[in-house]
Nucleic acid binder design. Sequence first.
RNA 1: GGCCCCAUAGUCUAGCGGUUAGGACGUCGGCCUCUCACGCCGAAAACAUGGGUUCAAGUCCCAUUGGGGUCACCA
Length: 486
Amino acid sequence: MTPPGTPVRVRIAPSPTGDPHVGTAYIALFNYVFSRQQGGKFVLRVEDTDQARARTDSEQLIFDALHWVGLTWDEGPDVGGPHAPYRQSERGQIYRDHAQILLDRGEAYRCFCTEDRLAKLRIQQQAEKRTPGYDRHCRDLDPADGERRAAAGEPCVVRLEVPLSGPITFRDRLRGEVTRDAKEIDDQVLLKSDGLPTYHLANVVDDHLMAISHVIRAEEWISSTQKHVLLYQAFGWDAPEFIHMPLLRNADKDKTKISKRKQPVSVNYYRDIGILPEALLNFLGTMGWSFGGDREKFTLQEMIDVFSWDRVSLGGPVFNLEKLTWLNEKYLHELSIDELADRVIAWRLNRDYLRSALPLVQKRIRKLDEVIPATEFLFSGDLDYTPVLGELAVPEVAPADVSKAVLAYVERFEARVGWTKQMLEDEANAWCTELGWKTKHAFMLLRVAVTGRTATPPLFETMVVLGKEITRRRLRRAAEALGKAR
RNA sequence: GGCCCCAUAGUCUAGCGGUUAGGACGUCGGCCUCUCACGCCGAAAACAUGGGUUCAAGUCCCAUUGGGGUCACCA
């Protein structure tokens, strides 16, 4: 437990694996507010130890998104700081050294099991309806032998030697003591065979080395926290204070944690549909936390001034676009006309956006007054499909199947990195072939879904200009509209 | 399924033993008004269930139910 008087140091630790997530902004907000109120430091650390999933462009997108909503950090990869580097991929030696410490202390062991063996083990356990988990096959190998084999280049991982049983407890600031029995916990992999650490090792080592006093993160980490407690003990370190915020939920029927399959999760989506950053931040501040005194609209500074963990409620809040929009309206209406003009320009009426949009319509207009009508769908968020429901179709195919097909196309581009005309077109062609539909019909379907019209500029160029967030949203809404049609 | 977390209207929430259970979004109705919107006024709408504890329970305890998270060489 953090001793009293310890300087407050908190962190946000995003993993650069995709679009900047509202959940990241949400947790960052609470870290930021708490650090500011306490006169502490806010650290941004990039957790990019997954080579397969890390994307180079994602890190910058996350920085930009956090800056866009108005959050800044005192230490991080871009601004430096006394505990640099702040990118875990650049701290490999630190983790290897610490894994070695645990190995030397007998708190961890080398495991030479192949992925193939683990997979078979898993299948067998499932067949026997046993709880899946590592069978500790390598736990009792002679450590000296393990060192020799590793030195000889045999691939291996390092696992934590978790006690066979006994309660492991930590105190969550919002929930009190949370206990799990050690027998429920696997011998966690700490160091992967590629030499990089897993989340658990890297996180604990960095939080300690970076003198993090309070770990403020999402509820999904609760059941991992005992593993972290074990690691702190194994190193002989004091653990920080843990504060697990509730998880943002989908507005859908099922209230699972917010996910892009269900609704937009990228901060950039909200930016692109014209949500003001201060409104989004304010809205996130009302998720699981209340200002008190019936206040719903408040500035970041006001939140800092009155912030208290006592005002956190633990039911997972549904991220409700209606209410966000209402709050946004409030902010929008209070802007001076000059400010409003600036916001609109920054949003879409800027040179960059026009330069990307105008090539699509230049040959389709005869007078300047036709620009706005011709490009109207490039300046809107959700579309109304009721007037074009008849066109949102493929001959001889049931609406429900058309709906599924639209979602299948979304899945196709979700699986691809980048957002280019070529990629979108390739996927559309493959999708069309798979369905056995005429491209003429299939592409018209997509066209209407994406633009709400039948006469438009070339489809894939249009999608590129609109961006992934809005395109995805429109296709999903079109699929929904089709699902409702009989 | 095991383990863990959670539980006030459709949604976000106030409530920290004694309230006509408050506010907000959304919905519906009305006022304002050249239209629409804003704004204003009003209405419907909640303490999951069952046991305790207590003079008194939305508030404390337990169980049930329901929801969620987690069980990777992902974070």
